[in-house]
């Protein structure tokens, strides 16, 4: 029963959504699929609580056992529950809540996100080597786009802007589309396997 019930639920839910997409039958199109989608939104919200619970378990244990970086576990728990409490007490539009958001979360996250720029440039330097003609083609194209997207490149050679636009619109989009079609078919295939109960990896058991 541990496997059968989730498989039956997957089949009913998946088939209703698929039928709701194709068939103009009010039960599938409106009642079943709309209700199921609304339920899915609620279930997904519960997943956030599940995540918070898991985080609490790991960090309470770490702090209690004085594990690695345990003071950070305490900071994390204080922030997690303190901010949650503040939000519940004063509401998300409250000025204190917003102050913490704008003063701590935004700059912190933006700082880490900006590391991407540093990493991308240093990784490009390390890996863009003209080892063979294919690598040369890739690096050459990349340089045209890198320069063509910014003012300095366009000032050096005005044709770089349109060239970069052309590369992005045609060869790039064509390649991307090919990958997307393949990946979409993979997704359909996986979805079918789950709906039909063939794929059971997500139930924690070997298929």
């Amino acid at each position: 029963m541990r496997k059968e019930i989730p498989i039956a639920v997957s089949f009913l839910a998946g088939a209703s959504i698929v039928l709701g997409f194709f068939l103009n039958v009010p039960f599938f199109k409106v009642t079943a699929s709309r209700q199921l989608l609304n339920w899915a939104v609620i279930v997904a919200a519960f997943a956030l609580a599940l995540g918070a619970g898991n985080l609490t378990r790991i960090h309470v244990t770490n702090a209690a056992k004085r594990g690695k970086h345990w003071p950070y576990s305490i900071i994390l728990l204080v922030c997690l529950y303190g901010y949650l409490g503040l939000g519940l007490w004063r509401g998300a539009s409250d000025s204190i809540y917003q102050w913490w958001f704008n003063g701590a979360l935004v700059p912190g996250n933006s700082t880490v996100f900006s590391l991407n720029g540093f990493f991308i440039i240093s990784a490009a330097y390390r890996t863009w080597r003209l080892r063979n003609w294919r690598a040369a083609l890739l690096v050459g194209t990349a340089i045209l786009v890198v320069l063509g997207r910014v003012g300095i490149g366009q000032a050096m050679w005005p044709a770089l802007g349109p060239i970069s636009d052309w590369i992005m619109t045609y060869p790039n989009a064509a390649g991307m589309r090919g990958i997307m079609i393949g990946a979409a078919l993979g997704t359909i295939s996986l979805g079918l396997r789950i709906i039909l109960g063939i794929e059971r990896g997500h139930l924690g058991v070997e298929s």
């Binding site: 440039i121 490009a124 330097y125 863009w128 340089i143 890198v146 320069l147």
Partner: peptide
């Protein structure tokens, strides 16, 4: 972007 090209 210019730095990237020079480094490469």
């Amino acid at each position: 972007h210019m730095l990237t090209v020079i480094l490469v």
